[in-house]
């Protein structure tokens, strides 16, 4: 338990210091909210006026302090370019991306664990080989190619899903749901093979271990051996793979969101970077940071749950 507390504190410390680094890094980029607002119609006078109004002339330390203080109190700042509260802009996008990630994750991870378990246990099976090959192909193909194939199949040949999202970013979940399947399927196809192959490799190793043979030779049934002896021993590396992939689903979906015109965080990040809206970029970067740190913390805890030898040490 002591270890876990230390681990959580470390995660928080890492987040805080990386947040400061991100703020300074983004601040060091050329341009700010005022140049973004006026774009190529900027005059030195307009910019100076704007900077005065939004207190951008304060030293970087003061602005960092103010930003951090506001953020802790739930205020993520104000986008001069978009003339709106940053929270109003970012939070719905986070929700949309999270929904997409959850659906894609539910499609990919449980099926990958089951497929990896069975393919690892029965490597001769023909269905297993086909699934393995398809997974590999999907993993190597770029997302936009998968998206195009899915389009062709599910929007044109068998038109059951809409090809492009035509709802605004603040649509209700029910309105959004029909548009989620195609991008989710694309993302699921990309990550499926990672965890499936990790699982398969784990099972291939574990099934030859002495304790598995020992269980079988005591008369433990095949199903019990597979589910209670092999599966938990093969899971720890898969948990870590899934954690990395889940973090990617929440932060790395730029291409897929752009292809399907899905109003998620990825689209917003591309837009915010291209018009140098630093106020919006910062929370997106921090969200990504938080996601990766949290996922690895969760993975560590799950691995500990799976192995009593690690549990005792913590």
């Amino acid at each position: 338990m002591k270890n876990l507390t230390r681990r959580a504190l470390f995660t928080f410390g890492a987040f805080a210091s990386l947040a400061v680094l991100s703020f300074l890094g983004i601040d060091a980029l050329p341009g700010d909210g005022c140049t973004a607002l006026h774009g190529r119609f900027a005059t030195p006078a307009k910019i100076a006026e704007c900077r005065e109004e939004h207190r951008l002339n304060d030293s970087v330390v003061v602005r960092l302090g103010n930003w951090a203080n506001d953020a802790v109190h739930g205020d993520l700042g104000y986008s001069i370019k978009r003339d709106d509260q940053v929270a109003q802009i970012v939070l719905p996008r986070i929700r949309n991306t999270a929904m997409l990630a959850v659906v894609a994750g539910l499609m990919a991870f449980p099926s990958a664990i089951v497929a990896g378990l069975l393919i690892g246990r029965y490597p001769q099976s023909r269905v297993g080989r086909i699934i393995n090959t398809l997974g590999l192909v999907a993993m190597t193909l770029p997302e936009f190619v998968i998206a195009t194939i899915l389009w062709l199949v599910f929007s044109i040949w068998i038109p059951i899903f809409p090809g492009v999202t035509v709802v605004p970013s603040n649509a209700t979940i029910l309105e959004l749901l029909p548009h989620i399947w195609m991008p989710a399927l694309t993302l699921a196809a990309v990550v499926f093979a990672h965890s499936m192959r990790t699982m398969k490799a784990g099972v291939t190793t574990v099934k030859l271990m002495p304790f598995v043979e020992s269980a079988r030779l005591r008369g433990t049934g095949e199903r019990v051996t597979l589910l209670r002896h092999i599966l938990p021993a093969a899971l720890p590396p898969v948990v870590n793979t899934i954690a990395v992939d889940a973090a990617w689903l929440l932060t790395g979906t730029f291409v897929t969101e752009a292809v399907f015109n899905y109003r998620g965080l990825g689209r917003l990040a591309i837009d915010a970077i291209s018009d140098r809206d630093t106020a919006v970029i910062l929370p997106i970067v921090l969200f990504g940071l938080g996601v990766y740190l949290t996922m690895s913390l969760i993975a560590d805890m799950l691995v500990r749950l799976l192995d009593p030898r690690l549990r005792q040490r913590s």
Partner: peptide, 29 residues
């Protein structure tokens, strides 16, 4: 296995499943 013939293989403590309690070993058997 277990009912007619049982084999206890040579092992350096690896013949028991590390994530299962002793009771669970008996339950599975």
């Amino acid at each position: 296995y277990g009912s007619t013939v049982a084999l206890v293989a040579q092992s350096l403590g690896e013949a028991l499943t590390s994530h299962l309690t002793i009771r669970a070993h008996f339950h599975d058997t």
